[in-house]
């Protein structure tokens, strides 16, 4: 009589062979399989995301006229305020160009932005990754900063044809140089993502804070991008530094925790900042 183990011998052997092939397969086919999986999965993710949007759209179309009128009024006001701000920024930009010309300083890196809807987010990687509905076809490149207004959400970690994976500020792989509000010497500190335990708000680490630095009294210190690394424009808000700073093991620094500036719990739409010039990060990755 054939035992169950003997009956399963064939499938088990096939599974073992598959596993062995997976381990032994060179990295190129493996990368191809992984990339193909992402591309196959992408339409499903996009469809799911569009369905969610449709549901939301239907919800909104049912809103009463008064609500719509109030929303329209608010938007008009916001638009007027933004137009004023654009004028003031244009004047600042022209002054900046004039000063740079006088000092013969090279112009800062320029970026164009692409707005992207969030396609998917997995619960297991909630604080470290999300997928957006923009990819290679839209000009998205590796390492591009992803922002929400002037707040950094993360950076592009993988690019597919029509989707991209974004590594969030709180992801352990995230690295960025930063400056702290209130630091008169404008020293560079580092922001790195960290593993986030469950049931606690997401946090990133801020390291190499000078020992002589003390956060400004009465308000949390804002952590901003330096613009020196070439990947992020200067002045974007990464987060706010928590007041408790601890001595780093090297003794020369303090370290602290940073709450991300962008509301990462519920991100629906982001902007990808694509540099006009290619960055070394793309080929060094």
């Amino acid at each position: 009589m054939e035992t169950p183990l003997r009956r399963l011998r064939g499938p088990l052997a096939a599974l073992a062979a598959l596993l062995l092939a997976w381990v032994l397969l060179p990295s190129l086919p493996r990368l191809f399989v992984r990339e193909s999986f992402a591309e196959f999965q992408a339409p499903a993710l996009v469809a799911l995301s569009r369905t969610r949007e449709l549901v939301r759209h239907l919800e909104l179309t049912n809103a009463d006229r008064e609500t719509l009128a109030a929303s329209g009024r608010d938007l008009a006001r916001a638009n007027a305020a933004l137009e004023l701000r654009v004028l003031s920024l244009e004047s600042l930009a022209s002054e900046n160009r004039r000063l740079r010309g006088m000092l013969a300083t090279p112009p800062p890196a320029e970026f164009r932005s692409v707005v992207a809807r969030v396609a998917a987010r997995e619960s297991s990687t909630w604080w470290s990754r999300l997928v957006i509905r923009r990819g290679r076809e839209d000009g998205v490149r590796l390492g591009c900063p992803v922002v929400l207004g002037d707040r950094v959400v993360g950076r592009v970690a993988a690019v597919h044809l029509n989707t991209s994976e974004v590594e969030l500020v709180t992801s352990p792989g995230f690295r960025c140089s930063a400056m702290l509000d209130g630091d008169e010497r404008r020293q560079v500190v580092f922001v790195t993502g960290a593993p986030n335990p469950p049931f606690v708000g997401p946090r990133a680490d801020v390291t190499h804070i000078p020992r002589e630095y003390f956060p400004p009294a009465g308000q949390p210190a804002v952590v901003r991008t330096t613009g020196l690394g070439g990947l992020y424009p200067p002045g974007l808000r990464l987060g706010t530094l928590e007041p408790v700073l601890t001595d780093a093991p090297e003794g020369a620094w303090k370290t602290g925790k940073m709450a991300p500036a962008a509301e990462l719990r519920n991100v629906a739409e982001v902007a990808v900042l694509i540099p006009t010039q290619p960055q070394p990060y793309e080929e060094l990755r």
Binding site: S177, F190, L228, G230, L231, Y281
Partner: peptide
């Protein structure tokens, strides 16, 4: 002259 730039570029441009 500006060591911060090198540190920043090391952190941002070089994948870990």
């Amino acid at each position: 002259r500006n060591p911060g730039e090198r540190l920043a570029r090391f952190m941002e441009q070089l994948p870990d």
